[in-house]
């Protein structure tokens, strides 16, 4: 029974992807999309989803939207500007190193969201996740501090706050 419940969100998600990718919504698309989405949902449902009821909480979607807006229009722009300035500077002021930052989230998807956000902003790349899932090791282009808490404030604090609201 739980297998079927878990299949439903995956099927809905894949159906949306199918319709968007196809770019049309004739009867043929809808019928084949529903059949394909149901098959994919049943096969992959138990792997992808751990807790279905999170999908029903609407506030998570608003926080997700806020996360996306903050991420694309503030974090990305700032990081791109910073690294582009370093590349075009004739002296190339880089000071790379690997720092350790604590991370305090519950679910694995939050770790994925935080780590991917960190990697996707130029200047920081996640190199390693500590086996106990409490620390991330970040390759940072300009190491300001080696203290974990301060590095966390500079790199991942906002991402973590949003990811907690969305995924935990």
């Amino acid at each position: 029974m739980s297998r079927i419940i878990r299949a439903i969100p995956v099927a809905i998600l894949t159906f949306i992807v199918y319709i968007v990718f196809t770019g049309s919504a004739t009867h043929f698309d809808i019928v084949t999309g529903v059949i394909g989405a149901v098959i994919v949902g049943i096969v992959f449902g138990s792997v992808v989803i751990t807790n279905t009821y999170k999908f029903l909480q609407l506030q998570r979607y608003f926080w997700g939207l806020a996360y996306a807006l903050y991420y694309f229009f503030i974090a990305e722009v700032r990081a791109h500007y910073d690294v582009i300035k370093r590349i075009l500077n004739p002296k190339m002021p880089i000071n790379p190193g690997i720092v350790k930052i604590p991370i305090d989230v519950a679910s694995d998807y939050s770790i994925l969201a935080v780590a991917n956000s960190i990697t996707n902003t130029p200047g920081t790349v996640t190199v390693y996740v500590h086996p106990n899932k409490k620390y991330l090791y970040i390759n940072w282009i300009d190491v300001v501090t080696r203290e974990p808490e301060e590095a966390r404030k500079a790199i991942s604090y906002v991402f973590e706050k949003f990811a907690k609201k969305v995924f935990d």
Binding site: Y18, F21, V47
Partner: peptide, 29 residues
């Protein structure tokens, strides 16, 4: 905990696998 690559790779693959399959089905059908 022992097998496979890092946890980021695993979780992202979990998200992306159904999407890849559905895109493949769309290309085929």
């Amino acid at each position: 905990d022992v097998m496979g690559m890092s946890i980021i790779g695993k979780m992202s693959t979990r998200v992306i696998m159904p999407m890849i399959i559905i895109v493949a089905i769309s290309i085929a059908l």
